[in-house]
Amino acid sequence: MIETIRAAFVIARRDFTAIIFSKSFFFFLLGPLFPIGIAIAAGNLGSQVSQDIDTSIIGVALSPEEAEKLLATRTRLADSLGSKSLPELVILDDIPAQEADIVAKLDSTKSLAAILSGTLAGPVLTGSPRDVNLWQGKMALLAETALSQPTAVEIETRYIRQTGSSSDRNQMLTAQGGQAILILLTMILAGMVLSNLVEEKTNKIIEILAAAIPMDAIFLGKLFAMLGMALVGIAVWSTAGLSLSLLVGVNWGALAAPAVGWPLFCVLMILYFSMAYLLLGSLFLGIGAMATTVREVQTLSMPVTMGQLLVFFLAYYAITKLGEPVEWFAVLFPFSSPFAMIARAAQMDNIWQHGLALLWQVVFTMIIIRFSVMLFRRNVMKSGQSARKKSLFARVTGK
């Protein structure tokens, strides 16, 4: 076992050094700029569409006469200002009396962003800081117009940490963002494992290495060398993105904190990316063991890529199904497990489950590597003129 680890380290160091110090690696680092630019443009468009569609709902806990007057004022102003520029108002039947009752009402009613209580002359707006700051001015305008008085109405604000609606919504957005980053990085970077193996098979380098080093060590070394290269690329991209965000003044405080906290969430992002990369990379090694030409590589890798998208869609769908059978399936299925677990990290604060998930993913990665080694020994180590003429099915089954 120790000899295998030492041999794997030698292979990893050889491949890592050859890739990092090559001229093509610089252009590889520039490659994601194009999809990132497209993603930023699409994100801005999507946020605008979301802003146009998603209107906050504010509960009105005033007397029946004042509530009706405020609702009629909102209808009149919507004709001139536009309905999307004003929040939706819902009159609450059971008016909460105490501040604690208002907080409980916000937590129990998931659709409400804030609650307006008190009187029109002395209104009180209670909600999360984001929602209160967003609608405080508009609610003051509605109150002034409803009272038909020239003096300004001062709205008293009461902040709660987060409403039930905003907490669930924001953590779900964090889960979606984490999954999107994982799948984007995995699909960009994992394919290099396949191209590297096929290139060395074509040059017969892999057969020379196999004569001196155990195949398990070669595959492990190649996997971790490519993972190291991927982490270097991510570090460069993250540094550039962070520097750019500081220059433009991005408000990081507006980001919704995940349930496990940002430090642990970032660590889990790195760990789950590593496992997603190793799982897909080990599968690509098996494909490389079966393929003898670049055309076969393209033929075999396309179903895997499409399957990876289906796996991502499964994990993405399961975000809102915590604890349900479909979500447990996404957690237990090895290829979707990293994506489903990072969503859990954003929405659930229990940490022990991540240790079990990572252990399960490591075990399954080793199983795939062993299977890939078996395929390689059948197809490459016994290669020859007769073996080259075998069909793809025969190479997979070893017959």
Rank of each mutant, 00 (worst) to 15 (best):
F284L: 15
K84T: 12
V373A: 10
P35M: 11
T320D: 15
G46F: 03
R6H: 06
I367R: 07
L45S: 09
L86H: 03
A180G: 12
K69E: 09
A104E: 15
G233D: 00
A343L: 07
Q308D: 00
E327S: 15
I102C: 05
A146Q: 01
G249R: 09
G288I: 05
N379L: 07
Q298A: 13
A210T: 11
Q48D: 05
D15W: 04
M374C: 02
G398N: 05
P64S: 10
L220R: 12
A7G: 03
I160F: 01
P87S: 10
Q361W: 02
A100H: 05
A42C: 13
T126H: 02
V250I: 15
I155T: 05
K382R: 10
T75C: 01
T73R: 03
Q51P: 00
S148D: 14
M192E: 03
R74T: 08
D79P: 01
K69P: 03
A210F: 01
E327L: 00
S24E: 10
I11D: 04
A256K: 09
F329H: 03
I369F: 03
K84N: 13
A42I: 13
L77F: 13
L81F: 13
P87H: 07
D79S: 14
D168E: 12
P334N: 06
M192R: 11
S83K: 15
L283D: 01
G249Y: 11
P87Q: 07
A345K: 00
V373R: 06
I270E: 01
V311R: 02
A140S: 11
R395I: 05
S238K: 04
V294M: 10
G288T: 11
S22M: 07
T55P: 02
K399W: 10
S372V: 12
A12C: 12
M215V: 15
E3H: 10
R6K: 14
M172K: 14
F284W: 10
K382D: 04
